Computed example of a mutant assay.
Amino acid sequence: MKRVVMNERPHWKADAEACGFTIHSMYGQRYWDERHAYAFTLEEVETKLEDPSTELLDMCYAAAERIASDEELMRRMAIPSAYHDAVQRSWRNHERDLYGRFDLSYDGNGPAKLLEFNADTPTSLFESAVFQWRWLENMKQRGELPSSADQFNSVHERLIDAIRILAAPSGHMHFAGMLESEEDLVTLNYLVDCAAQAGCKAKLIAIPDIGVDDEHRLIDLQDEPIDCLFKLYPLEDMVREPFGRHLPLTPTRVIEPLWKLTLSNKGLLPVLWDMFPGHENLLPAYFEDDTRISGLDERYVRKPLLSREGANVTLVNYEAGVGIYQVEGPYGEEGYIRQAMHLLPRFGDDWTVIGSWVVAGQPAGIGIREDDTPITRDTSRFVPHYIEG
């Protein structure tokens, strides 16, 4: 793995706009950054990223089994007690999920380390699946990369195949989110396009416009029953709202399913460490009321059970001269875990995290983000990658 300086395409913004990637710049700064790229060998991708992602996903499914079978553990993870039975039922019924993203720390040396699993509504999907592939093909056409260059990226094809299965037998799906969010809208429009390519009838709907009939079935503004709903809206928020009380009873298939509450939670990290202690792709992690946290000394990361985009994460690391570094945010009332410190690798002035995508239970590709701080935030930049031919 190495970071390589690249020539920025003069037309990249126009290309982004043309394919619907309107969030190429956010907060007044570039989000897509092709001034450099990350190069991997095929062996690195297969043995250091793809194979560990397969194993990590199997371990997460084992953890979901354990959590769903243990009401005390669900309570400890701040899963509302009113949903415990529904979570268990969802898991026992093998309800299908669509996708997730492991955030890994990897620099080309040693095993990749799992920092967290974004198991519900992870961002950066379109840029991972589509736009970095467009970049690769264009760079090969321009002679900037050899024709043999490849990319670890089958996200698009796997999403189409998975959505075709999820939409069966009716072939109809609704895609919901907060449509006023441009970032969410880019993702939803992309998934609607995937559904169309899968031969499905897809409909976009805003979360507040979802209704419920007398049988707890979800309906749209035209009172059309929703057979299958993909919601780009966190499960942990849905279950805490009046709308959420219908989820355990609805015949509508909701993606992601309720059992994903066991994985879209930082409490997963101490459960994994307890089940697979010493695994080379895991870091020691404990709930904050666990006396074993003393073994982490003054070198750990404090994370809320429910948090996104690095919000309310605190780094405590006096050894590396970082001291205490904290990102503010609205989370934390639900409790915290502590994870052993493993700083992201630094390339130049940037801290780099690898997002490893899993779609329908299979590794599907990676997306890389950089930040000028050791905590990846919503202002991080997306950087493309390629496999050397």
Results as ranks from 00 to 15, higher is better:
residue 82 A to S: 11
residue 178 M to T: 13
residue 177 G to F: 12
residue 120 D to F: 03
residue 128 S to I: 07
residue 172 H to M: 07
residue 135 W to P: 03
residue 189 N to S: 13
residue 156 H to K: 02
residue 118 N to V: 07
residue 75 R to H: 03
residue 79 I to E: 05
residue 127 E to P: 03
residue 185 L to Q: 07
residue 181 S to M: 11
residue 192 V to G: 13
residue 192 V to F: 11
residue 149 A to F: 01
residue 82 A to M: 10
residue 84 H to W: 09
residue 116 E to W: 05
residue 189 N to A: 04
residue 78 A to F: 15
residue 157 E to W: 04
residue 162 A to M: 08
residue 159 L to S: 01
residue 124 S to L: 12
residue 136 L to D: 02
residue 157 E to D: 11
residue 154 S to V: 14
residue 129 A to W: 03
residue 95 E to C: 03
residue 156 H to E: 09
residue 137 E to I: 09
residue 179 L to W: 12
residue 155 V to C: 10
residue 149 A to K: 01
residue 162 A to I: 04
residue 150 D to H: 11
residue 132 Q to V: 01
residue 174 H to I: 02
residue 114 L to V: 10
residue 155 V to Y: 05
residue 173 M to Q: 08
residue 139 M to A: 14
residue 149 A to W: 00
residue 155 V to F: 07
residue 121 T to R: 02
residue 147 S to H: 10
residue 170 S to P: 05
residue 167 A to G: 13
residue 151 Q to S: 08
residue 126 F to I: 11
residue 157 E to S: 11
residue 88 Q to M: 12
residue 175 F to Y: 15
residue 89 R to K: 10
residue 175 F to W: 15
residue 88 Q to C: 12
residue 155 V to H: 07
residue 173 M to W: 02
residue 117 F to P: 04
residue 123 T to R: 05
residue 137 E to M: 11
residue 80 P to R: 12
residue 165 I to C: 07
residue 165 I to T: 13
residue 124 S to P: 01
residue 102 F to W: 07
residue 124 S to D: 09
residue 169 P to D: 15
residue 127 E to A: 08
residue 167 A to W: 04
residue 92 R to L: 15
residue 117 F to A: 00
residue 180 E to H: 14
residue 122 P to E: 08
residue 118 N to C: 09
residue 157 E to M: 07
residue 184 D to M: 01
residue 157 E to T: 09
residue 101 R to W: 10
residue 167 A to C: 13
residue 102 F to K: 06
residue 161 D to P: 00
residue 159 L to F: 13
residue 152 F to T: 02
residue 77 M to N: 10
residue 120 D to E: 02
residue 174 H to L: 00
residue 172 H to P: 04
residue 79 I to K: 05
residue 191 L to I: 13
residue 107 D to Y: 03
residue 93 N to D: 10
residue 156 H to F: 02
residue 139 M to I: 04
residue 108 G to K: 02
residue 166 L to P: 05
residue 130 V to E: 04
residue 98 L to W: 09
residue 167 A to P: 02
